[in-house]
Amino acid sequence: MEQESKFGRRDFIRVAATAAAAGAAWAAAHPSSGTTVWQLDPAKCLQCGRCSTTCVLNPSAVKCVHSFEICGYCDLCGGYLQPGAKARDSGAENELCPVGALKRTFVEEPFYQYTIDEELCVGCGKCVKGCAVFGNGSLYLQVKHDVCVGCNECSIARNCPANAFQRVPVRNSYLLKTRENGGKGHK
């Protein structure tokens, strides 16, 4: 067999394949591009509910976040209360959140602070919708990076009807609503 010869056909193919594979990998890489992670743009999100059902994790890595700085601290909170709620208190029949993850605490007359219990939140987006329709839109969904496992192809991104998912640099991995961006969630 030609294995004994000095530089056989197989050696040639091996060297050529090494060069081709290395060249391809080098050509494909963007040396400057760092790691990226998935994030959803709250300006595009429609609160369809798929974030809570199509993540590979259960409960989902997408959870509600609260930009306190744009919150109106309303007593009558569209994100906290059912539309026809009889009383503005924490009775389960009045709360919009199906898992009771949104907590209400009194600040001063007539303001209330709303906080999300992340252990409970399933990212269903019900409060987000309520807040967007009746309030300032200070409640919105984000991929929580302490939970997200960073799928190569995010399973929610594929199912999102609003194409709200995109890859963002790992250093700047949230698309937050602030006063400066007018609550739009863009940088």
Binding site: F68, G72, F111, R179
Partner: peptide, 21 residues
């Protein structure tokens, strides 16, 4: 709704945005 100006000196908590990776 306007963002309220608190008289009690209330400061809102920080947002929970844990970093990735």
């Amino acid at each position: 709704f306007p963002m309220p100006e608190f008289e009690s000196g209330y400061k809102h908590p920080a947002m929970s945005i844990p970093p990735a990776s």
